[in-house]
Design a protein around this nucleic acid. Sequence first.
DNA 1: AGTGCTTATCGTCAGGCAGACGACTATGAT
DNA 2: ATCATAGTCGTCTGCCTGACGATAAGCACT
Lengths: 252, 252
Amino acid sequence: MPYDPSAFPPFAVTVDLVVLTVRRHALCALAVRRGEPPFQGCWALPGGFVRADEDLAQAAARELAEETGMRAHDPAVPVQDNGAHLEQLATYGDPKRDPRMRVVSVAHLALAPDLPAPRAGGDASNARWAPVEELLQQGGYGRDGEPVAPLAFDHAQILADGVERARSKIEYSSLATAFCPTEFTVGELRRVYEAVWGVALDPRNFHRKVTGTPGFLVPTGGTTTRQGGRPAQLFRAGGATLLNPPMLRPEV
Amino acid sequence: MPYDPSAFPPFAVTVDLVVLTVRRHALCALAVRRGEPPFQGCWALPGGFVRADEDLAQAAARELAEETGMRAHDPAVPVQDNGAHLEQLATYGDPKRDPRMRVVSVAHLALAPDLPAPRAGGDASNARWAPVEELLQQGGYGRDGEPVAPLAFDHAQILADGVERARSKIEYSSLATAFCPTEFTVGELRRVYEAVWGVALDPRNFHRKVTGTPGFLVPTGGTTTRQGGRPAQLFRAGGATLLNPPMLRPEV
DNA sequence: AGTGCTTATCGTCAGGCAGACGACTATGAT
DNA sequence: ATCATAGTCGTCTGCCTGACGATAAGCACT
């Protein structure tokens, strides 16, 4: 079939972001309130159109910066500064996913430490960190008894896929450190795993595992007592990317 | 920002396919010869435009059927018939990846048994199964001493990503059975792992591992001797999707 | 029929790792 | 001083894996 510009239909291409963080022992995602129809007033994932001269990763990094002020760092470089981890998640292109027109959305997954306060175009009331469990329970009732509106478009599916990706990826990679500040303790890292997986882990076995995996953690020499109790050693993320053998999510 | 149809640039959206199979102890991918510029005469991955009313998965399944005659089966259903496994791989959207226009390609990964003969629009000379190793060695020389032209566009990157996905996915899932016919022996399954990973595995430990994993293999009662040697039991793929604990790729 | 080759299948053994859990340490709060 | 809280180090046991010996059951020869 020869090249014919009229042979293909035009699409709009967007990037949507699943930005995850751990706050107060819960896995949370960034949600923004929609200001215009469709789904006006609903919560949605942050995102926007890909520009004409932009790569997909660039567009995702730009949106991340616009929504959170975070800078995404190069995926090839280990987590060191406060830049968030950013990776492509999956692409969603159901013909009816956007009632206005044919939109293909390339979803990206970002993992960030707890520090930044959300800001959507400077308006904090239109962006929030919400526990993913709360965002995903569609049509139910939240902790305050108020009915919970489901996320706009197919964003619940995208969020669920992103959460599942994060849950499985911290098993066999050192990505859990992306949820931590530059310096952190073994206990803080353990609480990240516990929040993401929603389980309790044995502190002693966890400590043995992570400190025994070469390249996972690098001691900085300092200690901290910000969690109370005995002072804990501080670590930075080491150069290792893949954990072998992996961390094992407890059964059942 | 209110909705404005002129606010986003139009894209063409395609699906490209990494179709993998195991032939003669080698991991092979389906390549088609391009009949028109750019990259006329070069080998490329099969693919095509997504139609206006089509989901991405539908488009990928349609292209797969057009190129190979295979039917993709529902990903939620375990591999049983001769339908190939099909899953989304990643999306490639560099502004310059296609010199003609802005094209975003949603790559899919298909795993198929060895049976089908390639056909590209009925013309067999324009499609072939090539060892991935041969397709990926850009600018080198093939086994016949002829110079090897690299794949068109960014298809070498897409193929490499697909191969890596397949290599890692057979570790922790039962997907290797997608490379096998409906009924197969433990030895045939082992040769799949050996071809995909490019390593030699101990037949005794492999046998113990796969037959000891609940739900991985279901004996059909029959035996075969098509590999020579002692007759081997025949199995079908069981219902298990995730292997726990996983198959381990040998180190080094 | 016997020999040799090939592949399949079962068994054994030692090392490593994970889960369960005891014990001790070092802080802050009362 | 005592307690509560976290962190860290050990021990033990069971499971899984890698290495590898041994046997089984076909086919192709002679």
